[in-house]
Structure formats: structure tokens, C-alpha cells
Simulated scan of single mutants.
Amino acid sequence: MSTERVRPLSELPEAVIFDMDGLMLDSERASVRCWSRAAAEVGLRIEDAYWLRMVGHSTAACQQVLRERMDDARIAELMDRCNVLYDAEVEAGLPLRPGIVELLQWLQAQGIPRGVATSTRRPRAPHKLETAGLLPYFHSVTAGNDVAHPKPAPDIYLLAAQRIGVAPARCLALEDSPAGVRAALDAGMTVIQVPDLVAPDAAQRALGHRIVGSLLDVRALLAARVASTA
């Protein structure tokens, strides 16, 4: 998606807060693959589209989705097996999303602070970033179990802004999922969505935030803002 079709940024953010899975790490495909494999191993036949409903949500929210199809004992069995498969994918190395390193290096050169707000819990969240080689780029990592209310509640973005020392209204949030977009908007941040597996529907687009094709487009929008004030 060309940045020409997206309205320019009205100001340069004082900090940028990143989601992790599906935005920086190409992990949502691995997640769907692990859910599907785990289900087959415990004797369940469930279509791949069902697992897309987990994208961007907390463990508790995923459990609610699973309760539509199975009881708590089967959920525990499925999640335990999925976690084993997913941890193996993490250790093998999750691919990076296009443009993430270029964007982080550009922000670092500009002296713009960077934080993470991810539904993934500790200790997995920082470990995934470390394994991917991205952890050194960030001033703080706010994980799903750092707050009482997960996305789409704004809590995790409010805490991420507090930890980085910048008012939410002065932060840019980068997200891929509908739940994350809602959380960041309700926190009062400027939001740019970079969709991955779940395309924004009409209701999502009606929220009025910017939607671009890749993190390279995000860098272009930020660079254009810098150039306009030079």
C-alpha cells in the first residue's frame, strides 16, 4: 500500500510503541500452524480459520473461544501441546516482518524512544524479542501479564507509555490486530495498523486510523514528517 493513499502524520511522535506478534515477528502463521498441529495430535479436527480468531488476544480470551468447541480439560491438553510446539518454533527462530529492522534503526538514529506492548506474557515476550535480535532496540517491554485487563482494553498501552515516560497522546502505536488497534486508540494514541493475517473490515476502517501495507510504509510516513519540518 502506498503512503500516498494515507494521510500524512500531523506531528512527529515523541515515542513509538510496538505490538510484537504479527507486527514485528512473523509469528501468527507459526501460531496457527501450532494450534492446528496440536489439535490434530489430541484428536480434534478444526478448520484453520477458527484459529485466526485467537490473533491479538490474551490467553484468557483464547480460552473463551476454545470453550465454544471443547471442555476445560481438553482446552488444557490442547494448550499444553500447542505451547510445546510453539516454543520449538521460537527457538528455531521466527522470521521478522518486512521493514522492522529498518524502522527500528531509523527511530534509533532519530533518538525517538521505543517500547513494546504485547499480549504475550512474561517471560516468553522478552525472550522472543531477544531470540529475534530485537530486544536491544527497546527501552521497555510491557507484557500481557503486566496488566489486569488485556487488549482490547487500553491498559497495556497506558502502562507502556508510563514506563517510557511519554504521554499517550504523544505516542504512536503500531499494531496489526483489531483488538490491538482498539486498545491503542482507547489509550489516546495515534495508531497505524499494519495488517497481517486478519484484514481490517468495514467497522475497523471506520475507526479512522491509518492503515498501511508494511512497516516500510510507516518509516516513509515518519521520514516525510521529518522532511516537512526540516
Results as ranks from 00 to 15, higher is better:
8 P>Y: 06
227 A>C: 02
81 R>V: 09
164 I>L: 10
137 Y>R: 11
229 T>P: 00
13 P>G: 03
56 G>N: 09
18 F>D: 01
18 F>H: 07
88 A>Q: 13
62 C>H: 03
212 V>R: 04
139 H>Q: 15
83 N>H: 12
177 S>W: 09
157 Y>V: 01
135 L>N: 03
131 T>E: 14
136 P>N: 08
229 T>Y: 01
223 A>D: 14
96 L>I: 03
31 S>V: 00
139 H>V: 06
30 A>V: 02
123 P>I: 10
122 R>F: 14
168 P>R: 03
49 A>H: 15
174 L>S: 05
189 M>I: 03
77 E>A: 15
138 F>K: 05
116 V>E: 02
90 V>L: 08
187 A>Y: 04
173 A>P: 12
138 F>C: 08
131 T>N: 13
142 T>C: 14
91 E>D: 14
165 G>P: 03
219 R>M: 11
75 I>M: 08
79 M>A: 09
72 D>H: 08
18 F>T: 02
172 L>R: 04
70 M>A: 07
200 P>I: 05
65 V>C: 06
159 L>V: 06
7 R>P: 11
12 L>M: 12
24 M>G: 05
139 H>F: 01
30 A>H: 15
143 A>H: 00
67 R>D: 12
178 P>L: 08
36 S>I: 01
102 E>N: 10
217 D>A: 15
25 L>A: 06
99 G>L: 09
154 P>W: 01
11 E>D: 12
33 R>E: 15
156 I>G: 05
67 R>L: 10
38 A>Q: 07
94 L>A: 05
50 Y>N: 05
217 D>Q: 11
46 I>T: 14
140 S>E: 13
41 E>N: 09
161 A>E: 00
14 E>N: 06
129 L>Y: 10
181 V>F: 11
79 M>Y: 10
95 P>K: 04
115 G>W: 00
101 V>T: 14
190 T>P: 00
100 I>R: 00
102 E>W: 00
69 R>Y: 13
224 A>I: 01
16 V>H: 00
223 A>S: 13
175 E>Q: 07
49 A>S: 15
3 T>H: 10
30 A>T: 01
216 L>T: 13
103 L>F: 04
147 V>K: 06
112 I>N: 05
